[in-house]
Amino acid sequence: MVRRPCKLIPLLTTPILMFRQPRPPDPDQDLVTRAQQGETRAFDALILKYGDKLYGLVYHMTSHKEDTHDLLQEIFARSYQSLGKFRGNSSFYTWIYQIAVNLTLNFLKKKKRRTSLSLNDLDSPVQQDPALIDNTHEANPERQTNLNELQIKLNEAMRKLSDPHRMVVTMFDIQGMSHGEIAKVLNTSEGTIRSRLHYAHLQLQSALQDSWEERF
C-alpha cells in the first residue's frame, strides 16, 4: 500500500515558518566551543576580536581610562567564568555585550553613590581621539579648532545625559549598532530604544545650540 503524503502539514507549517526565521549561525561558535573546552587561546582570540568595541563602549560611558581597563578585565573574567553556562540562545557578541552593559551600569551606579562625578577625574578624550587627529590633515585649522571645541561641548553634553540614554547614544551613534541589536543587548523593545535615542538627541541638540550658532 502506497502512503499518500499528507497535504495538511505544509499548510499548517507555512505560517509558522513565515514568522520564525532561522537565526544565522554564530560566527564565533567554533571559538566559543573551543574556549568552553578549556582552550585559553580561543578565548584570547575572542578578547582580541571584541576588545576594541567593548573598550569603546566602556570608555565612552566612564570617560576614564583606568576605570575602563579595570572594567574590561572584570567583563572578560566574568564571561570566561560563565562561558560554561552560555547555551548559544543569542550570539556570543550579544551575550558579552550584555555582560559589559550590566557591569558598566552597575559600576556607574556605585560610583555615583560613592562620590559625585568630578570633572577632574575625567580624561579629555578629544585630545586623544585619533579620528580627530587624522582629520587635522584634511580640514583647515580654523575649522578643526571649531570642531574640537564642539567635541568638547559634545562630551560635556554626553556626560549630562542619564546612563541609559548615554548608553543608547554610544551604541547607536558611536558604535554604529542597529536599533534591533541594541534592543537585544538591553533586553528592551525597539520602540524604547528609539524613544531614548530621540530624547537624548534633543538634549544634545539643545546643549550644542549656543556653540553651534557661534561657529556656523
Binding site: Q128, D129, P130, A131, N135, I174, H201, Q209, W212
Partner: peptide
C-alpha cells in the same frame, strides 16, 4: 540648532577611538 544628522556625524568621529598599540598584549 545642529540637526540630528550633524550630531550623529560628530559622534561618529569617535567611532575609531582605540586604545594605544600594545594595549591588548598587556591586557
Amino acid at each position: 540648532k545642529p540637526t540630528i544628522e550633524q550630531i550623529g556625524n560628530l559622534l561618529a568621529l569617535k567611532r575609531d577611538e582605540r586604545p594605544e598599540e600594545g594595549y591588548w598584549q598587556d591586557f
